[in-house]
Design a protein around this nucleic acid. Sequence first.
DNA 1: CTTACTGCAAATCATTTGCATCCCT
DNA 2: AGGGATGCAAATGATTTGCAGTAAG
Lengths: 156, 156
Amino acid sequence: MDTRTKAKTIEQALRNRGVRWTGQRQAIIEALVNTEEHLTAEELLHASRAIDESVSAPTVYRTLNLLVEAGMVSKRVFQGDSACYELLLGKGHHHHLIDVESGNIIEFTNEQLDELLDEFAAEKGYRIACHKVELFAVPINKPAPSDKPTAKPKKR
Amino acid sequence: MDTRTKAKTIEQALRNRGVRWTGQRQAIIEALVNTEEHLTAEELLHASRAIDESVSAPTVYRTLNLLVEAGMVSKRVFQGDSACYELLLGKGHHHHLIDVESGNIIEFTNEQLDELLDEFAAEKGYRIACHKVELFAVPINKPAPSDKPTAKPKKR
DNA sequence: CTTACTGCAAATCATTTGCATCCCT
DNA sequence: AGGGATGCAAATGATTTGCAGTAAG
């Protein structure tokens, strides 16, 4: 699915939910589909403004919230500060492996893993509505720099 | 390990890191070890004040941060707002199953799961430093209330 | 004694909200 | 038209920080 199609799909989905299609939303969606995964609200704001000067932060947040509610975007909150948003359109369920050294986020899927989790939950008497797996990892060439394995993107 | 021992262990660990042992920290640690998992900074503040009136919010945060840095407490940020802290002392690695209906958090371990993840990461050329698995699930008696599976503890 | 620790009040910062105006439909 | 959407400015709310006083070692 190319970016144009994605944008149109999102537009339709939102219109169907009864929201109005404005120039700002158009710009925000364009910026969103043209971006490679995982951006913060502020990054999206900048990108959107490059398309339409008039986009404001509240509108970005409001639109992002709409998208999250519509299930087209996922919101994730890491330690530290701002939330990261990710366009889900067209991608299946997946997990994240965060390269602690570079900060890169690698997406992956693993059926075996999903099955294992479903089975486990079933045993406990639950049905999984949504699950999240995050691996914080280091490349296996260098021997881990020191002792603190946990990612610490102290930004605030 | 009983709560007294836990408290002493934490005290020693922190002293070894060269921090001074104050009445407030004593109260905060006592409150912490006497609590059943997963509390917010504010909850800990209340509990601490029940022991020592003079404990203030900044001190709770400062102490909590010390504990996190020392690796004795984990901090987790869910969607929404305040972070949740969890005493790790004496418990092994574990994951969480969050009951979406009741908000209860059930801890579990699963070796098979951990192995699977380690193997997977190795294949990708990574060594896992720390991983996090969160299952948002609903009890399998009632048929899920509606359509939105994602936990929405809208508090803000 | 020295200087880390504390409480208080003020500062931060991401995100939200009130409101008057604007413009999709 | 009519009501949702927008920008602006102000509000929120968790967490942090500056500072002067206090107390641990």
